[in-house]
């Protein structure tokens, strides 16, 4: 599903050159639940951003569904992100001035779709995460766990094959974190979604199919 070949990422400022990722080779199968672990600043989020086409590697190639993304122009990259990838962030990234259902609809407004169909799919996604009763609420009226569930609904509303989750339980207590993980596990089982999750938490990582560890930008296992 996702294949990384010799990925290297260097951040360059005027004075400093920082090697964020070095020689990453990785393959994630369809329907696999992969956890990426490592200390802060080891390049986990950078790796996730490169997998999600939010960032470009300095060296190496990213393949999605067997297709190299090197030559993808902005439009094609945006289309892949919209259709194939769903993102879940540690800090939810909800738009506070939009209601829950409007937030969930966000990926669909970049598709040609009637507003009625968009609304229907957003409500279905919210039902999947157990938030049908909160559709008209605004993010500020929700708890952290509820916000993250909204973010998951937004990530799955477009029916992506890949979910990239950057510390989805990082801001939540263990109960809430457990709930979020249950939802993700359910998604893998029910819709064969590929999940790549960055986490610090060993207990959460061990619920995934496979764990890879990064240290100073390199893969250590």
């Amino acid at each position: 599903m996702i294949k990384l070949n010799g990925i290297e990422k260097v951040y360059q400022t005027e004075k400093i050159e920082t090697l964020a990722l070095y020689d990453i080779n990785l393959e994630v199968e369809r329907g696999e639940f992969l956890s990426v672990m490592g200390p802060s600043g080891c390049g986990k989020s950078t790796l996730l951003n490169i997998m999600g086409l939010l960032d470009e590697p300095t060296k190496g190639k990213v393949f999605i569904d067997g297709e190299s993304t090197v030559s993808f122009k902005d439009r094609k990259r945006a289309n892949v992100r919209n259709r194939k990838i769903g993102f879940i962030f540690q800090s939810y990234h909800l738009i506070n001035d939009l209601s829950v259902v409007d937030n969930v609809e966000l990926p669909l407004i970049y598709r040609t779709m009637s507003s009625a169909k968009r609304r229907k799919r957003a409500l279905e996604a919210l039902e999947k995460v157990g938030l049908s009763a909160r559709t008209k609420h605004f993010p500020s009226q929700l708890s952290g766990g509820q916000r993250q569930r909204v973010a998951i609904a937004r990530a799955i509303v477009g029916g992506p094959e890949i979910l990239l989750a950057d510390e989805p339980t990082g801001n939540l207590d263990s109960v809430m974190g457990g709930e979020i993980l249950d939802i993700l596990n359910k998604l893998v089982k029910e819709s064969n979604t590929t999940i790549v999750m960055v986490t610090h938490d060993d207990s959460i990582a061990h619920q995934s199919d496979r764990i890879i560890r990064l240290f100073d930008g390199s893969q250590v296992n």
Partner: peptide, 16 residues
């Protein structure tokens, strides 16, 4: 900026 980044992640192009 974060909202713009989010929109890009959700599938918005530069043009959009």
């Amino acid at each position: 900026k974060a909202e713009i980044g989010l929109r890009r992640a959700m599938g918005s192009t530069e043009r959009q």
